[in-house]
Design a binder for these strands. Structure first.
Lengths: 206, 206
DNA sequence: AAATTGATTGAATGATCATTCAACGAATGC
DNA sequence: GCATTCGTTGAATGATCATTCAATCAATTT
């Protein structure tokens, strides 16, 4: 294999092993030895491809952020022409198995828990959040709702909070329930733009 | 001082030092030596009052949970007779300086980031969340809104998510903004029960 | 195919830290 | 006041781990 292809391959291999290990053991028990074993490589290799453990972690977060960004931007781009459809796509996207699974949510929260003390984590998370909120705000503005910025903030925050609920209380909050929560809010706020969920409509009394 | 009074004093002293240290350095750089110094006690003492580092952390989380529980329960009890007032009290409480300050929110997220791998963290967080959501659901039900459980879940999740936003993006999301976000949702959903914010009304066009 | 450069290994190093414990001091009981 | 029990200290221990590096192996170049 070409040498620069290997270089990229190894980096991804190590990053994915890191995600695995964080999901399995958490941040505080993460060891480079285990990352190496998981990646099926030898002990010293992390420090050949990354300057340090911290650098590996930063690269791992950057990888996750990039993947998530591509994902929701793709969903928005693919969604039907009007703003409400694009907002719906953002919401539905956040509760698809691909991102709202136990492993991924676990790792996101692990990183968020450490963000405060790592400026590089922080800025990358900040950029992602701002971008998501800003796109959402523009879409809500296109619907002509008042205070689109506030609504976008709440919309974005609700997903993050529901992910926490899925983590902490998986029995009572699964993907589908979480999705219905957000839909209930959107439908309640802007019924002319967001239809009631089928499931919701059947339980709703008024 | 009486011996059992000392015992309780030391435990609290160590727990508060732990909160301080977590806020200052984060979970992954927390050392018992630093906790001891912060508490103005000697190195070995943590293992006299707590079985292990893990036990200290569990006790610290339990302490925070208990404090927060007392806080919001007190707010609900003190709030005016009808359900909407009590819900408002829950919301306002979540964005008072006492709990929604940088240090406290930082420490909550640090714990949530580790929760996944510590069953004792998990169950205590789960109980708290369930309790909060269940009280909120009863209050929404008393207002006669459809799907009170879903609404309560979203209401609770929004606070947690906004706390994350305050952490990650403090420039754009402060306590006051976060409070207004939740109020905007409640007012938009149930205008007959929740008045518009003064600030919100002035920027709202429709 | 020899020489050079780059990739990989895994043992060695050194730092950090939770935990233990022997020694000491202060409070309590007699 | 003496003995006992409990609280406290901080140095010693031992485990864990990130990081380094000499040695080896593989690919590329000449």
């Amino acid at each position: 294999m070409a040498r620069d292809a290997i270089k990229e391959l190894r980096r991804v291999q190590l990053i994915e092993a890191t995600i695995d290990c964080v999901a399995r053991k958490g941040f505080s028990e993460l060891t480079l030895a285990e990352v190496a074993v998981t990646a099926k490589l030898s002990t010293g290799i992390v420090n050949f491809y990354f300057k340090s453990k911290d650098a590996l972690l930063a690269a791992t977060l950057a990888h996750m952020v990039e993947e998530y960004r591509r994902y929701w931007r793709g969903n928005v781009a693919a969604a039907g022409p009007d703003a409400a459809d694009k907002i719906t796509a953002m919401l539905e996207g956040d509760f698809q198995r691909l991102v709202a699974n136990r492993k991924t949510v676990t790792v996101w929260y692990a990183f968020w828990g450490e963000t405060r003390w790592r400026p590089d984590f922080m800025s990358v998370c900040q950029d992602l959040n701002r971008e998501f909120q800003s796109v959402a705000a523009d879409l809500f503005a296109a619907l002509g709702v008042p205070d689109p910025t506030l609504i976008a903030k709440g919309f974005s925050a609700m997903s993050d909070g529901l992910w926490l609920d899925m983590l902490i209380n998986p029995k009572e909050t699964d993907r589908e329930t979480a999705r219905r929560v957000v839909r209930a809010f959107l439908h309640g706020l802007f019924p002319q733009h967001f239809a009631a969920d089928a499931a919701e409509a059947s339980t709703s009394a008024a």
